[in-house]
């Protein structure tokens, strides 16, 4: 997946990836990634848990907007099945400077 992210970024399209294998993602050199120490097959969390899944998307989109250089591997430290999730405040993304500049 990291190699595909690199190919897409190399053609000029920004990417953000999720990672469940930290060392591999770091070694491949992925432009932007959010690492989740979760079971394989669950990068966005548990089935039918929309708040959890959308929290992951929120973190990834925030990284997309805020990253100022390559190879950032964000580690939010979310624990597996031991967190409480709420619907993210999506309006916060519009306040990040990168999301407004034309």
């Amino acid at each position: 997946m990291g190699l595909i992210a690199r190919a897409i970024e190399a053609i000029g399209i920004p990417t953000v990836a999720l990672s469940i294998a930290r060392d591999l993602t770091a070694a491949v050199g992925v432009p932007r990634a959010v690492f989740l120490r979760w079971p394989m097959g669950h990068p966005l969390g548990e089935p039918h848990r929309p708040a959890q899944q959308r929290t992951v998307i929120f973190l990834a989109l925030r990284l997309l907007l805020e990253a100022d250089g390559p190879g950032i591997l964000l580690e939010p430290g979310l624990r597996w099945r031991r967190e409480t999730y709420q619907e993210p405040d999506w309006g916060l993304l519009a306040q990040i400077p990168g999301s407004r500049s034309p």
Partner: peptide
């Protein structure tokens, strides 16, 4: 597994520059 995969991979070149293009908004 991830650590092991890194060690045995021949294709990984730590010195190769990571491609990067900044996102230019607006996200909306």
């Amino acid at each position: 597994w991830a650590r092991w995969a890194v060690q045995r991979s021949q294709r990984l070149d730590a010195s190769a520059a990571i491609p990067f293009v900044p996102f230019s908004g607006p996200l909306a």
